[in-house]
Simulated assay, not measured.
Amino acid sequence: MKHSKLLLALAGAFVLSGCQYDILSPQGWVGGQERNLLIISTLLMLIIIIPVLVMILYFPLKYRADRQDLTDYDPSFQHSNKIEVVIWGVPVLIIAALGYYTYVYTHRLDPYRPLDHLDAGAPIEVQAVSLDWKWLFIYPELGIASVNELAIPVGHPVNFHLTSATVMNTLSIPALGGMVYSMAGMETQLHLIADSTGTFPGRAAHYSGPGFSRMTFDTLAMSEQDFGKWVEGVRAEGQSLDRISYLDLEKPSIADPVSHYASVEDGLFNRIVEMCVEEGKVCMGHMMMQDKMGGGGIAGIPDAAAYSHDRERAIDGLGNPIALPAPEPRAIHAAAPGAADQPLSTSARRSTQMEAVTHVH
């Protein structure tokens, strides 16, 4: 019996040896706050769970049918104010406490809330794009980009702007904090910070097809000096990320190696958000503004190719591209060539997105 228990314990330890406990051992302020909320919520709920588990065993044993001592049996018992206070008062207090802490931490950990209150170093801007099946990280202030590798300086807030070039996905770096969804045609934000150096795994946390399990990356949290060296190393590699090279990168692929880009075309991220990287495509902001003004109607049917996005990105269940016949494109706004495929400013894009959400031809 003794040996069997030992073997069972060893088997459990072996099964759990591959687990990572980043959520309970965070390396950033955001992750630390989320761990605290998790612990507080768990302890509050255990106030109910533990007594219930004890009573599940205690009452059936104490009041079993074959017990000998029946002196505590009172057939006239109907009500107890003390019991009512306990069974209603304690849960109400626990729910109130859970609501309070949830409210506090929800506002404290708002993904859109900058981490300026930490009095940390200057923030680093990162534009993250989820692709099939890889991550693209653009550093707009530095003019560089990387694929499947995120480098950040320790002690500096990282201001993420996220979008997707394909299906909905989720950026997750458990050691640093929570995650947020990325969606095509939309831009969202997330703010994280690393408190210590190290390599922290990141991944896509939302199923997105056959390459989902390999859609991972390393987050390299390093000192300012090492981060500067990393930036210079990326700039020395000489590759350029422009609209043409991005469209090649966007093609579905699985388990891509880490790659870097020494320069990035201005406004590329805005074009990705607006879904108009290809020449001749109408950007989402202009498309929705046209919708607000009444749309193209039947007369706009020949222009369908300029408004199409998913057709060129169709894939089968294994991630292989599917060639679909595309509508014949035609020039848009002949009176102002090129104007239709220029992305709107961020403020203009947000205002149009609030006013219209769909376009049908």
Rank of each mutant, 00 (worst) to 15 (best):
H3A: 13
H3E: 04
L6M: 10
L8D: 02
A11W: 02
A13C: 06
A13L: 14
V15N: 00
S17W: 12
S17V: 10
Y21W: 15
L24K: 09
P26W: 10
V30C: 03
G31W: 08
E34N: 11
R35K: 15
I39T: 13
S41P: 06
L44Y: 05
I48A: 08
I48W: 02
I50D: 00
F59C: 05
P60T: 12
Y63P: 02
D69A: 10
L70A: 09
D72T: 13
D74E: 12
D74P: 05
H79K: 14
K82T: 15
V90H: 06
I94Y: 04
I95H: 00
A97S: 14
A97F: 08
G99Y: 03
Y101P: 05
Y103E: 02
Y103I: 12
Y105A: 12
H107E: 03
L109S: 09
P114R: 12
L115Y: 07
L118H: 06
S130Q: 07
L131H: 07
F137I: 11
F137Y: 07
E149A: 14
I152K: 05
N159D: 05
H161E: 08
H161G: 08
T166K: 14
M168S: 12
M168A: 15
I173H: 07
A175G: 09
A175P: 08
A175D: 04
L176Y: 09
L176R: 15
G178I: 13
Y181D: 13
A184Y: 04
I193E: 05
A194S: 13
D195E: 10
T197Y: 03
P201V: 11
S208Q: 01
M215R: 07
T216I: 14
E224C: 00
F227T: 10
G228K: 14
K229V: 11
V234P: 01
R243E: 07
I244M: 04
I244V: 14
Y246H: 06
K251A: 13
A255L: 10
D256T: 14
G267F: 08
G267H: 09
M275P: 03
M289R: 15
I298H: 07
I301P: 03
P302I: 08
S308W: 00
R311Y: 01
E312M: 04
A314E: 01
G319E: 01
N320S: 11
P321C: 03
L324A: 05
L324C: 00
A331L: 10
I332K: 06
A334W: 03
A339L: 12
A340M: 08
S351Q: 14
Q353I: 10
M354R: 14
M354D: 10
H361D: 00
